[in-house]
Design a protein around this nucleic acid. Structure first.
Length: 110
DNA sequence: CCCATGACTGAAG
DNA sequence: TCTTCAGCCATGG
């Protein structure tokens, strides 16, 4: 329960608000939190949340819609499997029709 | 304080 | 779209 968790907590809070079947990017979350240049920190926060099933980290991908964080899940294809379970299509570790499934917290959460 | 690492992003070729 | 490079900043040694 440190102050440092405040930043992580905000990231988790946004991640938890990602609608079912939708995805967003690290940069989008970072920008929403007022730290647009700290997209890597969002990824770092996700890394720290590993093990917390209450956080849909699988709905957070990079700006290209590529599931670069899949290696951080229990299984290599767990992240993809979770996304496909929500109706998303994955091709070559990339979300098909990414723009249509993209959920921007700055536009939909603000 | 310096250095390395990283689930990122944007620009350039 | 891909590759490469630089900027970004929190965390850890």
């Amino acid at each position: 329960m440190s102050k440092s968790e405040n930043f992580f907590e905000k990231v988790y809070d946004v991640a938890k608000k990602i609608p079912y079947g939708r995805v967003t990017s690290y940069g989008a979350i970072a920008k929403y939190l007022g730290a647009a240049k700290s997209a890597r920190m969002v990824g770092w926060a996700m890394n720290a949340c590993n093990g917390d099933e209450t956080i849909p980290a699988h709905r957070v991908v990079n700006r290209k819609g590529m599931i670069t964080g899949k290696h951080h899940f229990s299984g290599i294809n767990l992240m993809q499997q979770l996304l496909e379970s929500e109706g998303l299509m994955i091709k070559n570790d990339k979300i098909v029709n990414f723009e249509a499934t993209f959920w921007n917290p700055s536009k939909n959460l603000k």
